[in-house]
Structures are given as structure tokens and as C-alpha cells.
Design a protein around this nucleic acid. Structure first.
Lengths: 134, 134
DNA sequence: CTGGCTGCAAATCTTTTGCATCCTG
DNA sequence: CAGGATGCAAAAGATTTGCAGCCAG
């Protein structure tokens, strides 16, 4: 929790609960997931606080906002940039460990200065592969 | 327009307007963009029709739904899979022409069957680079 | 103490839906 | 003429905002 203090953030009980929930979480929860999980133990937690906190953390680079779920934003507490695999069947999202070196992209009639990249892999996870019963 | 007929779609004036708007459009418009553009010339066009048509086209693989704009879905009339560059300053999205061969992703404790992938490059377009006045 | 944070409810924005009517094939 | 398509308005979700009161530093 040290790093949050260093960043000049107030450590309220609500924030601690959110931080604890995110810590090591690999499920890429949505704001709603976070709210639901925490409000069980913390009935006064409000959506506004969840969004405020996530927005604050995002600005400080401590969570990443993931946009590939068309229904809602998801949040990733893994601060270093990385890639993802998405199960097209159950929508589960997992982190990809390796790094990729990509050729510079060819763009029609534009000179882009490339800063970074993000790869989404689409696939079927082992659980869903089993269910499909080939 | 031949291909739409072949697919068994009814060619209503509204659909023709949407198809014409998308034809060759590289701007990855949102449903709202499409609605706004078309309702000027076609005042009775409704959102429902825009969404219905896009959904129909998506099912037939004639448009792609893009999710990386956190505020809304965007649509891409380019039917073959391809990658994108996004200007972090003006949010403009352009197509990337080249293909990439990616190593299989390493995933913790899971065996994914990989089906496809999509790369987003982030960068600054030439227009925005100029504005920044380095 | 004081500014940042919280909680509530209302507002906003995008997308979806129900249903009566319309019109293409 | 039938079934798919349209248009309207209302509903549904996700996220944001205004504001009064609260509390960590």
C-alpha cells in the first residue's frame, strides 16, 4: 500500500477495499464486479466511489482500462503493459506473458508516430473447449 | 450492392443510405455518426434502423464492430480482418495494411486454442504532431 | 481544519426492445 | 401478400455528475 501513500492519495477504508480486491486479481473485473464484491462486506460503498477510485488510479497509471468488452469497461491492476487473450465463448480474459516485436505498421497516406501497441488474441479456453464436446 | 441482394437482404432506401455512407468510409464511424450523417438527407431514419442494419451486416460479416473506443462502438466496413492505429490525441482510427506473424501467446495455467488476433497501435498522427509544436 | 473523498440520486449517453405499421420481393 | 424492415418511444445498462456532509492527514 506504500505506493498509494507516496502518490499522495488518501487511504480511506473504501479505497483499501478496492485496492485489496484488485491486488493480484487476474480476472479483469468491471466496475460492477468490483462494486458487487465489495458492497457485500461494505454495504455503504457506492458506484461513484468505485468509479472515482478507478479513475484516480488510472490517471496514476496503477490500473489499466480495457475496452474490448463491448458491454462495459474492465480494469486490469497489472501496471506494466501487456497483451490479452479473450475466450470467445465465456468472455474470460487472461494476460499474455510474452512480448512481441512488431514491424512498423503501414498506414495509408499518414505518418504516425507509434507510441505503443496492444494485442488481443481471440480463442477458446480449455474449459469451453471441453464443453463444446467435439 | 449485388452482394447484399445475394445475401437475401431487402434493399430498403434506409439500408441503401447506410451502405452508401459506409462504402469506402475509413473513419470508423459510430452508430451515432451514421445516424447524424444520414438523417440530414433522410429525416425519418431512426436509431433502431441504424442498429438493426449494422447488426444484420455484422452477422453477415460485412462490417466489423470495433470496441476500443470506451465511449461507444465503432463500425468498420472493411470486411477482411486487419489492424488499427489510434491517434491518442484526436482519437482518429486508421487501418493498418500489413499482416503480422505472431508467436503463440504464453498464458499462465491455461491452454487456449487461438483463433485470431487484433493489434491496436497507439500513436500520434501527423496532424496532431504538428499541433504539439515540438 | 481543510481539501479531498464519499454516498446518494438524478442525469447522461449509448444501445436495445416492443409493437404497430409499412413495403420489398 | 407475407415476412422482414421501419419508426417511435420507452427501457435498459453503464457511467458521470452535483452536492451536502464526512474524515484522513
Amino acid at each position: 500500500m506504500e505506493k498509494y501513500k507516496e502518490a499522495g492519495l488518501k487511504l480511506t477504508p473504501q479505497r483499501l477495499a478496492i485496492l485489496k480486491y484488485l491486488e493480484g486479481n487476474k480476472e479483469h473485473p468491471s466496475a460492477d464486479d468490483i462494486y458487487k464484491a465489495i458492497s457485500k462486506k461494505f454495504p455503504t460503498m457506492s458506484f461513484a466511489t468505485v468509479y472515482n477510485t478507478l479513475e484516480t488510479l488510472r490517471k496514476r497509471g496503477q490500473v489499466m482500462e480495457l475496452n474490448f468488452d463491448p458491454f462495459k469497461k474492465r480494469f486490469d491492476p497489472n501496471p506494466r503493459p501487456h497483451h490479452h487473450v479473450i475466450c470467445v465463448s465465456c468472455q474470460k480474459i487472461l494476460d499474455v506473458q510474452n512480448e512481441f516485436s512488431l514491424d512498423p505498421p503501414q498506414i495509408e497516406s499518414e505518418e504516425f508516430e507509434i507510441i505503443g501497441s496492444h494485442i488481443e488474441f481471440y480463442g477458446v479456453c480449455s474449459k469451453c473447449k471441453g464443453k463444446r464436446r467435439n
